[in-house]
Simulated scan of single mutants.
Amino acid sequence: MSETSEISALRREYVAAGLHRADMQADPLQQFEQWMQSALEAHPDDATSMTLATADAEGWPSARIVLLKRYDSRGFCWFTDFRSEKGQHLAENPKAELLFYWRGLERQVRIRGRVEQLPYADGETYFHQRPRGSQLSAAISSQTEVIDHRSTLEERVEALDSQYADQVIPCPETWGGYCLIPEHFEFWQGRENRLHDRFRYTQVEGQWQIERLQP
């Protein structure tokens, strides 16, 4: 059997309880909060991991895993280097989608919307909440740019650490946060025989409309 055939033969059965319209919260943020709390209880190390999908001005997509650091009625926030590929994409095309996948719960959530850059003060506050090693790494790296060798990065970290040995490391102006303002949610619950439950929230005249989707 070829490797391709072996992959195509892989199967996973979904056994979770169903998702019913009557159980869905009217506000998708409240529904997300319920699912996030379940994910934190089940797998706290991975619960906030999310795929961030962006596209450049020509429509070429790119996706990567980032960590959710805050969410509330304003939106869903993460932090990064503004010069990174995702930062460049968002400067050209400030729209994105987030995907949470909680394998143990057999659940996915997709959240789509426009993205805004957070004020510098927000990034600075979170920057100084991070471990010193993470601050150093963020401060010396021009994320996604080519580098000749890892040792170059390590030397930069050592130099900056020595420079600010007894001081607070300044937050670079090129580092900070983004906030996705949701316009579309989809909640997916895996079900037996691939007859999955899917519910979509869409804003219509300022109100959230809920629709069941075919699997």
Rank of each mutant, 00 (worst) to 15 (best):
T144W: 07
S137K: 02
R112K: 12
R130H: 07
H149L: 05
S134R: 04
Q163P: 10
L105W: 07
S141R: 01
T152Q: 09
E158A: 08
R156W: 07
R156F: 05
S142N: 11
G177H: 08
Y120D: 01
G123D: 05
Q129S: 08
Q143H: 14
F127L: 01
V146N: 04
I140A: 02
L105D: 02
E124N: 11
E92G: 03
V146L: 10
Q108W: 00
E92F: 01
Y101V: 14
H149S: 10
Q129M: 02
E158C: 03
H128T: 14
R114A: 09
V109T: 12
T174P: 02
E173Q: 09
G104D: 13
Q143W: 11
P172L: 12
V157N: 08
C179E: 13
E92C: 02
R132H: 04
E116R: 11
S134H: 06
I147D: 02
G176L: 06
A138N: 04
R107N: 06
A91C: 02
E154P: 06
R107W: 08
H149A: 13
K95G: 10
E154L: 14
Q117W: 12
P172I: 12
P131Q: 06
Y120T: 12
P172C: 08
Y164S: 07
T125N: 06
E145V: 13
P170I: 14
F100E: 00
A139I: 13
W175C: 06
E173L: 06
C179V: 15
D161A: 13
P172M: 13
G113A: 01
Q143M: 05
V109L: 04
F100H: 00
T152A: 11
A138S: 09
K95W: 02
R130F: 11
A121F: 10
G104Q: 14
L136F: 12
W102C: 02
D148L: 09
D148F: 12
R103A: 02
F100N: 00
D148T: 15
Y178G: 03
P172Y: 01
L136R: 01
R114W: 10
Q167V: 14
R110P: 05
R156P: 03
R156V: 15
E97N: 04
R114Y: 12
A96V: 04
D166M: 04
G104Y: 11
K95D: 01
R156E: 07
A139S: 07
D166H: 13
R132A: 01
L118E: 09
V109N: 01
Y178R: 00
T125V: 15
A139R: 04
I111R: 05
I111K: 11
Q135H: 04
Q135V: 14
L105V: 04
S151P: 00
L99H: 03
P119L: 03
S134M: 04
V157G: 10
L160M: 15
